[in-house]
Amino acid sequence: MNAQKLLELADDELILGWRNSEWTGIAPLLEEDVAFSSIAQNEIGHARAWYELAARELGTTADELAFDRQPDEYRCSTLVQLRLVPDWARTIARHCVYERSDQARIEALKQSEDAEVAGLAAKIDREEAYHRMHAEMWSERLKDEPRFSAALEELEPLFDVRDEHVPEFAALWEEMTMVRRSVAGATW
């Protein structure tokens, strides 16, 4: 599989995981805090797995791909870049939009001729099933809430938009790569 496509996928998962983890400690209720943080962690785990495949093709490492690229090299969708804290309705809307679009993408990857890609997609899909369950139960609960419907409408078209970064992506990149940049080339 094309390394650039793998990077798209990995970047989506890393940045979404990062954005979702901004809710850790401030989610609307404690149980949700734990659940949403766990989902965020899973997404970052998926990113690592995709980065490792890409890294082998590109002759680098997962860490370098995740943290040592310049901001304009990240190929993630506009949808995952948006900073939505403290708007829970929009956060859940993004979660729903992402999980639905990601499901179609993962389904296609499971049919990949590359056995490694197909295997990884199947493995990730088994974990995503719980994310989808979580997204669906929230969407059921918020479906009559106008803020939620408006957010769905706003965010749905953004999954396939990858041509440029939203302004708040710069601050995310600054923070996400801060430690790596502070001691360049260090081994941890």
Partner: peptide, 9 residues
């Protein structure tokens, strides 16, 4: 449903 998801986590 929420209880199930939260208990799982």
């Amino acid at each position: 449903e929420f209880a199930e998801a939260y208990a799982r986590e």
